[in-house]
């Protein structure tokens, strides 16, 4: 079942939370709404579910306009950040709730709930109370509950936001596998770029109630359309400077190649990914290492260059030669992503 949203608007009091969002999700696709908190992405999701009513705009599910339908009649599965399990019902009754509401007979509802619990890896926990489960287990119960009535659309609102990093990463991969098995059209709201990029077919960046960019994870990472997208994704350095006579941007102690021909004297802001910076031990270098943080196969190097602070990610082997206080030379690989500085 496909989802189409056309030109949605929503205002809470004086605050315009959504200012014209259009979105189209293909049947079976998994799309993330990514963006900073308060950008309106959750509100978009709640409007799709019928939990909020848009002030203007249209929502279509499976080719039918559903704006007039309340949440109970839309038949979409919804998963909340803080699980929202029914605390007074055992795990199995939580999962069976949506089936019982649909008048499935209790034995059948229970059987199907047990089967779903087994599928999400919680077989054997049916008789527990929600309070007795860990956060990750609770969210899997919530997912099983949402999936029980076999919705063709699944909406997830920051589903892993309340969990610790390790559990998040595990559940994220698990969710993607589950999606591929179940095949429900899925929209995931998250402020975690890694989550959005790793799990979805398409990422929609939302900011201040507007869509900044809508594209595949690769497009978002490699061809950010706006400065905001470039800055939001990955670990970045933002430097400002002026283009010199040779057409190079002098900024943050670096001389950067810029795409195309730019007039000398133009002021530009460059967004440099940390992995695009090259850091080499060089006694004559102007940079000074402030801190080296070992990560998996790379190291994060914090340094200062002519007074500006920069972050670089370099291979661990290269980082061996870098010590706090050592002098380094810094260069940027490839042309920089630059944006005009608005007056």
């Amino acid at each position: 079942m496909g989802i189409v949203a056309k030109n949605l608007h929503k205002q809470f009091g004086e605050t315009r939370v959504i200012r014209g969002v259009s979105l189209s999700v293909e049947p079976g696709e998994m799309v993330s709404l990514l963006g900073p908190s308060g950008g309106g992405k959750s509100t978009v999701l709640r409007i799709l579910a019928g939990l909020e009513r848009a002030d203007a705009g249209e929502v279509w599910l499976d080719g039918q306009r559903v704006d007039h339908l309340d949440a109970a009649s839309r038949g979409v599965g919804f998963v909340f950040q803080h699980y929202a399990l029914f605390r007074h019902m055992r795990v199995v009754d939580n999962v069976a709730f949506g089936l019982k509401v649909r008048k499935v007979n209790p034995d059948e509802a229970r059987r199907r709930a047990e089967a779903l619990l087994a599928r999400v890896g919680l077989g054997g926990l049916s008789e527990r109370w929600p309070d007795e489960l860990s956060g990750g287990q609770r969210q899997r119960v919530a997912l099983a509950r949402a999936l029980a009535p076999a919705p063709r659309v699944l909406l997830l609102d920051e589903p892993f936001g309340a969990l610790d990093a390790r559990v998040r990463a595990d559940l994220r991969e698990w969710l993607r596998r589950l999606h591929d098995e179940v095949g429900a059209t899925t929209v995931l709201v998250t402020h975690d770029q890694e989550e959005a990029l790793s799990v979805s077919d398409r990422v929609v960046l939302v900011r201040d109630g507007l869509i900044e960019q809508d594209g595949s994870p690769a497009e978002i990472v490699d061809s950010p359309r706006t400065e905001f997208v470039a800055r939001f994704v990955g670990e970045v350095n933002v430097v400002e400077g002026v283009v010199d006579a040779e057409g190079l941007l002098v900024a943050g102690g670096l001389r950067l190649r810029v795409p195309g021909a730019v007039k000398a004297g133009t002021r530009l802001r460059a967004v440099l990914r940390s992995h695009e910076l090259q850091v080499l031990a060089d006694p004559a270098g102007r940079g000074v290492v402030r801190r080296v943080v070992p990560l998996d196969d790379r190291a994060r190097v914090e340094l200062t260059l002519d007074g500006a602070s920069l972050v670089a990610r370099v291979p661990r082997a290269e980082a061996q030669a870098l010590h706090v206080g050592s002098a380094v030379g810094v260069a940027s690989q490839g042309p920089a992503r630059v944006w005009a500085i608005e007056a």
Partner: peptide
């Protein structure tokens, strides 16, 4: 809200 989305 969860109950609502489940059709209650």
């Amino acid at each position: 809200e969860a109950a609502r989305t489940l059709g209650a």
